[in-house]
Every structure is written in C-alpha cells, then in structure tokens.
Design a protein around this nucleic acid. Sequence first.
DNA 1: CCGGGGCAGTACGACAGTAT
DNA 2: ATACTGTCGTACTGCCCCGG
Length: 356
Amino acid sequence: MWFERKDELLAVVGEQEGSATDTVLAHALSLAQGRPLRLVLPQQWAYPTRFRQPWLTADIGIWVHSRGKLLQQPPKLTKQESRDAAGECETSRPYRLGPHATQWVRELTEWATAHEDLVEAHRRNLRGWSCNGQRVLTIEGKQKVKIRAGIDAKDAPATLHEIDAPLTSTTFKAIQNEVAVGIGQAHGKEFGKFEEHHMQGQLRRYPNALLLEEPLLREVPAWRPAGGQTEPRRGRGFIDLAGIDGAGDIVVVETKLDSDEMLILQGLDYWVWATREDNATWLRDRLYASPTAATNLLFAIGGKDGKAPKIGKYERSHLEVLAPEIPWRIAKISQWNGANVPQVQMLPPSTPPQPD
DNA sequence: CCGGGGCAGTACGACAGTAT
DNA sequence: ATACTGTCGTACTGCCCCGG
C-alpha cells in the first residue's frame, strides 16, 4: 500500500506479500524521485531490504511489523555489517566420476567436451553438458554409472543408460544419437526458449566480447539475502560469470534479458558478497589475480530474440543511487542467438544507459 | 560417519488469456 | 500493441533415509 506526499513516499507491506517484499524497495526507489522513503515491512521479510540499504544513497527509513504490531525500529546496518552477513564462499568442487567410471565412459566425456554445440554445466552431484541452455547429457556414478542422454523433459524423459562395465560401441553410438536429437530439440526450442540460459552460454563461449580474459568462472555459488524466520537469512544464488578485465581487476557479471526490476539490486547483492574480504581472496586465488585487484560489477543486458535490450526506469533510478564506491558498468548485448559472436556495446564505467 | 538415492519444496521463466 | 495475471514446467536445493 502506497502513501504519496510531496516530500515523502511511504509504503506499508503486509505479511501476505511474503518474498515479494523485496520488490517494494525496487518500486519505491523508482517512484521516489529524490523524496525520502519510509518503508514499513513485515519483520519476516524485511532483511533483504535492510541488507541493501547501506549501499544506496537514497534516504531510506525501514520499520518492521509482526502480527499486526509495529515493532521497535531495527538498527540501520552499516556497510561492514551488511558485508559480514553476506555469507562465505562454497568450498565443494564440481562432481568427479569414480575411477572405474572414468575409464568406462572416457570416450563419451571426451566426445562431449570436444563437441562444438555443447557447453559444460557440471554440478556438485553430476557432470553435465548443455546446448542453448538446456541439458542434453549427464553422467553420474561412483560405482555404477548413470548416463542420461537427451533433454529430460517431463513428458519426454531422457533415456537412462546404467552401465557397470566399459561403454560398448553400440551404446556409445546410441547415446551420441540421443544427444544429437536433444541438440536438435534445443536448437528448435521445442521445450521452451530458455533465452537467458542460452545467452549466458554464448557469453561463456566468447568472454572477449565482454572484455574479459581467461580464466573465467561460471555459475559461482554465492549467497544473497533472503527472508524467513531463521538465521542465517540467505538463499543460494549463482554469479553468472566472474573473470578478469584488461587491467587485471575482477569482474562480477550479472546477466539479464531486457528490463527487470530486481536486476540492479541483485547485482548489488553479488558485489557485496564478492567484496567480503575472505570471498574476495578466494576469487582472486581462483582467478589468479593480484591481491590488490579490485572487484567491478558488470550488468550484461541482452534483448529477447537477440534484439537490442530494453532497459527501463527501474535500472536507471537504481543506478542513480548505488553507493559511489561500487564500480559498475553496463554492456548492451544483441544478436547473441546466432552462430557468431554476440554483438556487445560496452558503455563507459558508471554511465547509465540512455532512455530508448 | 559419509556418500548416494529418493522425495518434497522452491525459484523463476515461458506462455496464454485478459485488460488497457 | 502493450501490460498484467495466473498457471505450468524445468532445474534446482535441502532433507531424510539407507547401506557400506
């Protein structure tokens, strides 16, 4: 519920909004037009807003309520406190097959790794490959090996091959064939478009287009603030790409298709996480960057169907109030869905996009 | 005690239908 | 045409149980 006055903007959010409480800050920042914001949020869901508040130059006051009662105003978090609460880095590594399994399927893993249309998409519990953002091959197993070939859709499940001996050439050919069918379905977008994943895959293939060097980290497990009753208040998130720029600084990339009300605030969450000292050290080690490397934030925004991206009022108003020490910039991406390198327009640092 | 398998719950985009 | 809303499906996560 909104109350607008000439010199103030007040928003009161009910319990029923749940996790959508986050978006109130996003809307409020763009409605505020420089006015002070006064937000009254359900206690259970207020945390993400409190987490972001120290990093925004706008005048934001936050109150919380629970069971119909206004509680004492929660303390305003400092940047240091917000960063300390951002969560630590993930130490678990990508999945590894068992030693026997590795030998049994060696030809298959090598074929997939070399395949032009496949991008590796390994998880903690499996090794996988995807095409245009959809998984078409997974291999898992420490003793027995389970291979799923093709897109694993609900009404058209992938074929499951379970083996406990070296892959026969018949099975290998069958898997290659099923994967090829899956690649065809992914290209034809038969089970959905998955445009954001598709674009991310293309950006991974061509890091130079974003002015990034190798090594490049993909899907870096991070944390973002979340609501809920229990501490710690955070939820899993993945940083789409993290790499090194021409100056040797770290770049954290948040990708999106067209306008999104939460884009800038999500990027902020990841930047805060990535600049927590232990996480920054971990990133520098993995990227082989200098101990003094800075952490920059890049918003890589593409347009649907490979068209020019639409960037809206939320992005512009949020960028205006990002704390000045956050080094951000925008990349506008188009023609990312073709066979060639995506077309990227890098805007200068801290330069907002022009209205369309 | 650890890793794997299975189940339930969640996040988020696509899509279709409706309103402006 | 464009914006909004609800439903559906995919891809995950976390949790629990089981067996070595």
